[in-house]
Amino acid sequence: MQANVKWVEGDTFIGLSNSGHNVVFDAGSDSAAPSPMEMVLMSAGCCSSVDVVSILKKAKQSFSDVQVKLTAERAESAPRVFTKINLHFVVTGNDVSEKHLARAVQLSAEKYCSVALMLDKTVEITHSHEVVQEQVK
Rank of each mutant, 00 (worst) to 15 (best):
Q2I: 14
A3I: 14
N4M: 09
N4E: 14
N4F: 04
N4T: 05
N4Q: 12
V5N: 12
V5M: 13
E9S: 15
E9W: 00
G10Y: 02
G10N: 14
G10M: 05
D11H: 02
D11R: 04
T12H: 01
F13V: 01
S17C: 09
N18H: 11
S19F: 12
D26R: 01
D26M: 02
D26P: 01
A27M: 12
A27D: 11
A27R: 13
G28R: 02
S29M: 12
S29E: 15
A32H: 14
A32D: 13
A32Y: 13
S35V: 01
S35M: 08
S35R: 08
E38G: 03
E38N: 09
M39Y: 14
V40P: 09
L41F: 05
L41A: 15
L41S: 09
L41D: 10
M42F: 12
M42P: 01
A44F: 04
A44M: 12
G45M: 11
C46T: 08
V52A: 03
V52D: 03
V53E: 07
I55E: 11
L56Y: 05
L56S: 06
K57V: 09
K57P: 07
K58T: 02
D65A: 13
D65I: 05
V66A: 00
L70N: 06
L70E: 10
L70Y: 14
T71K: 10
R74G: 00
R74F: 03
R74H: 07
R74A: 01
A75I: 08
E76L: 07
S77V: 03
P79W: 07
R80K: 15
V81P: 00
V81I: 12
F82D: 06
T83W: 11
T83C: 10
I85F: 02
N86L: 08
L87N: 09
L87H: 14
L87P: 00
F89Y: 15
G93F: 00
G93Y: 00
N94L: 06
N94F: 04
D95F: 01
D95I: 01
V96T: 09
V96M: 11
V96K: 06
H100I: 03
L101H: 01
A102R: 05
A104D: 12
V105T: 00
V105E: 11
Q106K: 10
S108L: 06
A109W: 06
E110S: 03
E110C: 02
E110W: 04
K111A: 00
Y112N: 04
Y112M: 05
Y112L: 04
Y112T: 04
V115K: 11
L117D: 09
L117I: 00
M118Y: 08
M118I: 00
D120N: 03
K121V: 04
K121W: 07
K121S: 11
K121R: 15
T122H: 10
V123Y: 05
V123L: 11
V123N: 07
H127R: 02
E130K: 03
E130Q: 07
E130S: 02
E130D: 05
V131F: 12
V131Q: 13
V131G: 08
V132Q: 07
Q133R: 01
V136C: 07
V136Y: 00
V136N: 15
K137C: 08
K137P: 14
